[in-house]
Amino acid sequence: MASTNRRPPMVCCPEHPDSPLVEDYHAGDMICPDCGLVVGDRVVDVGTEWRTFSNEKDTKDPSRVGAAENPLLDGSDLSTMIETGPNLATDEFGKPVYRNRRTMNSADRSLLNAFREINQMGDRLNLPKMIADRASTLFKQVQESKSLKGRSNDAVCAACMYIACRQEGVPRTLKEICAVSKISKKEIGRVFKLILKTLETNVELITTGDFMSRFCSNLGLSTRIQKGATHIARKAVDMYLVPGRSPISVAAAAIYMASQASNEKKTQKEIGDVAGVAEVTIRQAYKLMYPKALDLFPKDFKFDTPIEQLPTQ
């Protein structure tokens, strides 16, 4: 079976077929240099429309295509605005000049400001860009629903970042979100609940293991202490020793117990500063766990301080 693929005919001068054609981009013509015959017209100039000062002459210049479009914006296209009036700009031949202008409505401007705030929060929290993108998508969905009118965009941005972190499996505490935003913890929690109700979505419940590795790393504790604290926190939850306590306070109390039984002792204040938990909260959770300390530690844990000598509070 014969192939149906055919090469397009080569453009050449009928009188001088071997002569290389000259492209005149100003006029948009292809001219034969021997006889001056215009062989082709309407040649598209793929170069830039302005001067560039790049030293890399052998690479392609992408300046002509402009900036990348943001799919989260409604008016991200380039529109042509025709200028009218007595002060109409003209070229050297007296023809009107048509300019492409980037137009943006107030809604897109508000979205851009919100996306910028979300990206800044992600940078302060050292989060990957996909977390900020998820938060930006949540913010746009909230804006389109128009159910949170009257709430400040900063509060919605902070709540969206909190939800995105939990949905992506890298949860952050409300205090951590509060520290990188201008909104109080109470307001972020209130908007967080409203967003979940508005978007009819849910988030996974946070556990002590979600924060354990990060807290131990920030405290400079070894892997042995981290494994012991993780086991202690999980057993305390399974044995219902800390009912009603937040996973963050349970994780902090477990780290305190594991560190006190090792040679890498940390105070309640040091742990509280990293976990964002008050010392009294850690103390209360620790007092609930201390009577069952023997059952909480893993069997292979190496004690530098016996359980009998652990602090009682």
Rank of each mutant, 00 (worst) to 15 (best):
C160K: 08
M161T: 13
Y162N: 10
I163Q: 07
I163T: 06
I163A: 09
Q167V: 06
Q167T: 08
E168F: 02
V170W: 02
V170D: 13
P171Y: 02
P171E: 03
R172S: 06
K175T: 11
K175G: 10
K175E: 13
C178K: 15
C178N: 15
C178D: 14
C178I: 03
K182Y: 04
I183N: 11
K186C: 04
E187A: 09
E187V: 01
E187I: 03
I188S: 03
G189N: 12
V191I: 14
F192R: 08
L194I: 12
I195F: 09
T198V: 14
L199A: 08
L199I: 07
T201N: 10
T201R: 05
T201M: 07
T201D: 09
L205H: 12
I206A: 15
I206M: 12
D210L: 00
F211E: 03
F211D: 00
M212T: 07
M212W: 02
C216N: 06
S217W: 14
N218P: 11
G220C: 08
S222G: 13
S222R: 15
I225M: 07
Q226F: 10
K227G: 02
A229T: 08
I232F: 02
I232E: 02
I232H: 03
A233P: 09
K235D: 04
A236V: 09
A236T: 06
M239A: 11
Y240G: 13
P243D: 04
G244Q: 07
G244E: 10
S246K: 10
S246N: 08
S249D: 12
A251H: 05
A252R: 00
A252S: 14
A253I: 06
A253R: 04
A254D: 13
Y256F: 12
M257W: 11
Q260V: 05
A261P: 05
S262N: 05
S262H: 08
N263R: 09
E264Y: 03
K265T: 07
K265D: 01
K266D: 01
T267E: 00
T267S: 15
Q268S: 04
K269E: 13
D273S: 12
V274Y: 03
G276K: 05
V277I: 15
A278S: 14
I282E: 01
Y286R: 08
